[in-house]
């Protein structure tokens, strides 16, 4: 499963991994979008029952659902979207953040988007949606942190 591929890496290492994967596409926009969609297709299936309004990430143009759970002090994410590109984008976040402590997630600085030139190929509206997803993940982490304090 994709979500497991970065297990053992730090958040920064996972970001570097993504940057190097994308560099193979040499900035070809269509290839990049196709690749993002492929990543989305490879995500573990999202449970139908979790596709609720409560799990919807607000602020995205497409529908995005996200859930988080804490196992042995590590946070794991699952996500889905009704559009293929957004599903691929959220899969990047799932890969980067899954398997880390709430502290690590809250302190993480996301740099990969800029490095792969994401705004250029997803546009302003999707970039805003992407920011909303990151915010949601940080909320999850904060909630777990408060609960465990």
């Amino acid at each position: 499963m994709v979500a497991e591929t970065f297990i053992g890496m730090t958040i920064d290492q996972a970001q570097e991994e993504i940057v190097s994967e994308f560099s193979l596409l040499e900035g070809d926009q269509e290839m990049t979008i196709f690749y993002i969609m492929e990543l989305g297709q490879k995500m573990p299936p999202f449970p139908e029952t979790a596709r609720t309004e409560q799990n919807e990430v607000k602020g995205c143009q497409s529908k995005v659902w996200m859930t988080a759970e804490l196992r042995n002090g590590l946070m794991y994410l699952q996500a889905d979207s009704n559009t293929a590109i957004t599903k691929g984008l959220v899969s990047l976040l799932v890969r980067i953040f899954s398997g880390h402590t709430p502290d690590e997630i809250l302190n993480a600085d996301l740099s990969f988007m800029k490095k792969i030139g994401m705004e250029r190929f997803i546009g302003t509206q999707r970039s805003n949606g992407f920011a909303a997803m990151v915010k949601q993940i940080k909320y999850f982490a904060l909630a777990f942190q408060v609960k465990n304090a």
Partner: peptide, 14 residues
């Protein structure tokens, strides 16, 4: 089976 947003975004790459 293909969302209209995805189609629009992919066409933009061309």
């Amino acid at each position: 089976g293909i969302h209209h947003f995805d189609i629009g975004q992919m066409m933009d790459t061309r």
